[in-house]
């Protein structure tokens, strides 16, 4: 009886965690949240003077918390952050802070930007709607892959939300060529034996280069075997500027930010 009771409690707790987890992932707010560059920069100044002493310049000085990477112990939504900053956490030694509402918005914007001081304004919408765009209208899976489905032509995005800041992802959607990281530039390799490989680099050192081609085949080449190597400067990805509404862009961003591996 006692055992069954414990199991039942665990089950209920598990279900509750699952529900709360589903209902409140970091970016899946019901309404779209706006974070402006002005607020991010104002938030940085407040953060540096008021928060950095304990949380550190990178937001990772308190154990179990990495503010820039949206890893929290007690909060999830913007409202949670607002409440915690205002009332403090006496048990953890965090004092209450007397901020104006606009100041709180600014600090939240700085945290949500991933401490991206130079980042553009962005908005985060609904992740579920964003997934529908990714799989449907956006046609993203024609090149990208998430959790085992989609193509391997372009980088796998299964953990993109953990790797990139919101403004950077947004820029990749709107200006793919300008935002493309050097490692992802398309390469065209002609080998001394005549083989031609087209794909992108995964790794490189002084002597060798590791590639994946458009069909998902892996190559490790000795540079001494390469006759000609060309690096493309344009991206194969189309710009989605003007193709997605502001709300759709916010939803797509919410979905990509939710991909944490």
């Amino acid at each position: 009886m006692r055992s069954a009771g414990v199991v039942a409690v665990f089950l209920i707790v598990g279900v509750l965690i699952a529900i709360s987890g589903l209902a409140r992932p970091a970016f899946a707010q019901v309404s779209t949240q706006q974070y402006s560059t002005a607020n991010i920069q104002a938030g940085y100044r407040l953060y540096a003077s008021q928060c950095a002493l304990c949380h550190g310049g990178n937001g990772d000085s308190v154990a179990g918390i990495n503010l820039a990477h949206q890893q929290f112990r007690r909060v999830s939504t913007d409202a949670d952050i607002r409440r915690t900053v205002t009332s403090g956490i006496a048990a953890a030694g965090m004092p209450p802070f007397q901020f104006q509402p606009a100041e709180l918005d600014a600090i939240i914007a700085y945290i949500r930007s991933g401490f991206d001081l130079d980042g553009a304004s962005f908005a985060v919408g609904d992740a579920a709607r964003g997934k529908a765009i990714f799989d449907g209208k956006g046609g993203c899976t024609a090149c990208h892959r998430v959790h085992g489905s989609g193509s391997r032509t372009a980088p796998d995005l299964s953990d993109i939300g953990a790797l990139r800041k919101p403004a950077v992802i947004q820029r990749s959607i709107l200006e793919p060529a300008a935002a493309m990281q050097p490692i992802n530039r398309p390469v065209h390799v002609v080998m001394h034996d005549g083989r031609v490989i087209e794909g992108r680099r995964l790794n490189e050192d002084t002597e060798t280069m590791q590639l994946i081609d458009r069909d998902g085949q892996l190559f490790s080449l000795s540079k001494s075997d390469i006759q000609n190597f060309e690096l493309g400067r344009t991206s194969g990805m189309p710009s989605f500027a003007g193709k997605l509404s502001t709300a759709e862009l916010a939803d797509l961003l919410a979905y990509l930010l939710s991909l944490k591996g």
Binding site: D116, D118, R164, V168, A178, M180, Q181, P182, I183
Partner: peptide, 8 residues
Amino acid sequence: FAPVPSSP
């Protein structure tokens, strides 16, 4: 300094 902002 990286040629593409926020790249590794």
